[in-house]
Amino acid sequence: MERSFRSDLIRLVTFLGGVYFFLEFILPVSVLESVGVEALHEDISYGFIVFSSMAMGLGLINLFLVHGSRIIFQRKDWMYSFVLLIGLVCMMSSTVMDWRGGQGVADKARPFEILREFSDVIERDSTASREDVPPLEIRTEALRDATFARIAELRANIDQKTLLTFSDQEELYPLGETYIENLREILSGTEQAARDVKVGDFSSSQALAASLAQVSGFIRRIEQLNYDHSLTKKTYDFLYQGLFVSLGSAMFSLLGVYIAAAAYRAFRIRSFESSLMMVAAVLVMLGQIPFYVYISEDLPAVRQWLMEVPNSAAFRAIRIGAAIAGLVMAFRMWLSIESDSFSKERRG
């Protein structure tokens, strides 16, 4: 009984989901906008991302179960599982630390970004004549005071050499020093822009906002330089770029050898079809190489005809057939005509 309710619920949700996407595809945008679906569509799409993230957790659990049990019970080839789980844990920790490092860089610049946003908000609220916010004079004064306070704080940090920590990166000292000098100049300019801000004069507050954006950009650049040479980033780059990407490229390069082996098997003349395939392949290969002129001037044209006429026709036929079959299958999934077919027990 419970199973029947569950499957009915799944069918209903599948059908409603299908109806939504079908109508979203088929109805004019003007209709969708008038019923308010246009605005909701992005949120609905985010919902699918959430489901995908939950499924990723399933994959992780499966990995730990399969390989964890193999290690615990020391089944055949348990060492491979051990290496896999160690690799997984290392990569996960490194990625989390890299994410936190990136957040740290953003956090350092955040106070100045908040001030810039505040400057924009003051202008927007004033233009809109909002009355539920503090008066313009008080807000402008607050912006100015906060800017001075942040600049003073940052200056003290630069003077104490706490902003930059290139302790073990001597080659970065000259670059770091140049950045700090530039930042000092920008800070002086920002201080001046803060002094020049006048109540109700939005061009002066816009100049301050531009200056604040420059400061936050510079802080990000300095922090990023610092972070790029930290142990965390180096570890992450070693594991991802140094190992993972390189191993992926190594796997891909295997294709070169495998294609040669597969071609050898395919080109053995065993039947009329394989002979035809071999002749076509030889013509295509000869038409591709620069030495074709020594054989025949027409080879590139023959190659092009083979690729564009018989080959394209076959490709299109396969694609159209598969697309229609896929469409029909999708239709069956939408109406849940499919779901009973996978097991005889359910069929009965």
Partner: peptide
């Protein structure tokens, strides 16, 4: 269902179903 991969399978596998035959 991807026609680009069909030749590889034909060369390497004992039997290959092409495109919609999968469905």
């Amino acid at each position: 269902v991807s026609p680009e991969q069909v030749p590889f399978f034909i060369c390497t596998c004992d039997y290959t179903l092409i495109g919609e035959e999968l469905y």
